[in-house]
Design a binder for these strands. Structure first.
Lengths: 373, 373
DNA sequence: CCACCAATCGCAAACGATTGCGACGGCTCA
DNA sequence: TGAGCCGTCGCAATCGTTTGCGATTGGTGG
């Protein structure tokens, strides 16, 4: 005698006025419809346990489930299994056009694998980052894809030590060996330098990104290395650091570069936004690109081919970066103790109109600043 | 062996010598620590039920909870309460730079109210949209913010009829009265037309967006109305429709416009991407903007001031649009039967260098196409 | 002095799923 | 014929929290 386990057992005395609640069907409903126990229904519906139940009953259960439009409740499942089919995606700032393609790549891989991504913004604020990650963890995300890594990042190291599966995207860390997906920045920068040298440039400047990020540092080092490889002088006066990857910082640093008085005819920016900042300053000082100064960006942001002038930039396969990081994370989730792997994706130089042969030995505008002789 | 990084992976073989699991503390732990029943702890921790428990015990419970670093498990809570403190955000395409600021606005309002947003992409694919929304609902999101609405949208109407709280952002629907937040497109377009008329333009074209979206249709109608208001002829030959809000569609439609042979000296694009498409064609045909043709965009996308030439555009307060839609949704969640409200946010014209006085009666390039007489 | 009430708090049943374990038949094999 | 095994499937516990209800206490008014 099957006990009536249904919660809505009609109150005795109450008329059989069946008020059909819009409540979506539960596992119990399909079990009852198929005349089996919920446990059996559960096993029948789950592909990995399906062979524990008679093939005929299984298909009957499936049949009923479909006709009822049964959708398993991910919350209940999560609670029981402590798994969530969800991964967290931690971004510094969605407004940066760099990230949407990465997100797309990630989702396109995760989706077919049955996972979804929780996207959170940190605004580059470590406090916010910590609380966001905390929130993700309490939601039982199974892994993290992190685009906010700094070279020194205690929080991430701690998570990694705790065995939290994660992969860094677009960034690497100094110490820990955490899986990461980045572009081959060293080769990219070398390509850019060669391009400029081939055009005839000899004094090339660098707008370096934040030195507490791997991209900022790797690109800066690669820059120095490439100069030396070409037998050029690696003049510290031709490198200016930016504290953030923003247009404003790019402008500030580029102004500083000009004001230092060391002549240069080309600049390689740590990324496109910094390059845009230098565009602003070039206009502001009455200079012309590429006549007075050639500019190379990094990332090949969308629409950057429509800027004035169209920016020569290094194209990073962002979509692929995202996709690859998702694949890495899935691998990690599948085989936990796998040794962390890091992949390097190729970048390519897209030559547009912001680079050209040096017009003449550039005499940087000294402004009215009276510094130096 | 489930890989569960939340709870300390108990080393196998370790004696049962009180292995203090790193497992995050549960309500039971707190209750036990405070010497009360979990139910009491729950009530003490919940601000709305706190007055059901003795003030002293309440503070003791809170004390213990803090010292233990207790974080309530949202999943368990969700399961029990059928609420999730989560809303779904349905976007057509995150890659469109229009959306990140909207997302920011939404998150900035939702966050302090204790809500989080699940972001999903639909790629403008109705099938995908349906499955994504289904997925959101099964996660018990409490409401939806939807940026993918078309004028006719059975799915949304059905959800609305089912009482799903939702607000449309940047779009409205034809029939249902669903809360929405949009820009004041009619006024915006009128402003643009006046700007062009003031410059001396008399034959103005329109690159219309998809006519199954409210924005596309409203802007197109406003365009015709504004022409008439200025006593100008509303020539159907000067309106070309785009099927999508993409650069490519803009280019295609603009080519068609030129090939029709009706002269015009300015064009108002349904949005910035369409305007960019016309830029491409202007270059491709050897024309010049604004000398031959003035162009006005819509949305004032980030960085669009750096295009060639800097695009005159209508600025929509996207952040505010997002924020306002979040506020609306929160209101709806707070008072379910409230009559749906729709808000219209002001837009402003940002004049840059893509608009200027007409050089001479433009003689559109007829190309080598042999169509027509 | 008893009945009643308010304030507190515990009990236990949910929420919807998963899963170890054991029950039950039917079958094989010695 | 009985022991043992295998295929199926039900039982019940469990995940962590919320909440209706009832029990206990102490205080109060009649």
């Amino acid at each position: 005698m099957t006990r009536d386990w249904r919660r809505g057992a009609a109150k005795p005395g109450a008329p059989a006025a069946k008020p059909p609640p819009v409540r979506s069907p539960t596992l119990r409903d399909v079990a009852q419809g198929a005349g089996v126990h919920p446990a059996t229904a559960s096993r029948a519906l789950n592909p990995t346990t399906r062979d524990l139940v008679n093939e005929e009953t299984a298909s009957r259960v499936i049949q009923v489930a479909e006709s009822l439009g049964y959708r398993p409740n991910p919350i209940a499942r999560s609670l029981k299994t402590a798994r969530s089919a969800t991964v967290g995606l931690v971004l510094p700032d969605l407004t940066n056009p760099l990230f949407p393609p990465i997100v797309r790549g990630i989702e396109d891989i995760l989706g077919p694998a049955g996972y979804n991504a929780w996207i959170v913004n940190t605004d580059n604020d470590p406090k916010r980052e910590e609380s966001q990650i905390q929130s993700l963890r309490s939601r039982h995300v199974e892994g993290l894809i992190i685009a906010t890594a700094r070279l020194e990042h205690p929080l991430l190291e701690q998570l990694h030590a705790h065995g939290v599966p994660m992969v860094l995207v677009n960034r690497r860390m100094a110490t820990s060996d955490i899986a990461s997906v980045t572009a081959d920045d060293a080769t990219g920068i070398a390509t850019a330098v060669r391009h400029l040298v081939d055009l005839g440039h000899r004094r090339i400047a660098h707008l370096a990104g934040p030195q507490d990020t791997s991209t900022g540092r790797v690109r800066r080092r690669a820059f120095s290395q490439a100069l030396r490889d070409h037998g050029l002088q690696d003049d510290p006066a031709l490198v200016a650091e930016c504290d953030y990857w923003t247009e404003g910082e790019g402008a500030r640093a580029f102004r500083a570069l000009l004001d230092r008085g060391s002549p240069f005819s080309a600049v390689i920016a740590g990324n496109d936004l910094l390059a845009l900042g230098s565009y602003d300053v070039i206009t502001e000082r009455g200079l012309s690109c590429p006549r007075d100064i050639s500019v190379v960006g990094y990332n090949d942001m969308p629409f950057i081919d429509k800027f004035r002038p169209p920016l020569t930039s290094l194209r990073v396969p962002h979509y692929e970066v995202g996709a690859e990081s998702a694949r890495l994370l899935l691998e990690t989730l599948g085989t936990p103790n796998r040794h962390p792997r890091s992949v390097l994706l190729p970048v390519s130089l897209v030559v547009r109109q912001s680079t050209g042969p040096p017009d003449r030995p550039a005499v940087p505008r000294r402004g009215r600043s009276a510094h130096g002789s």
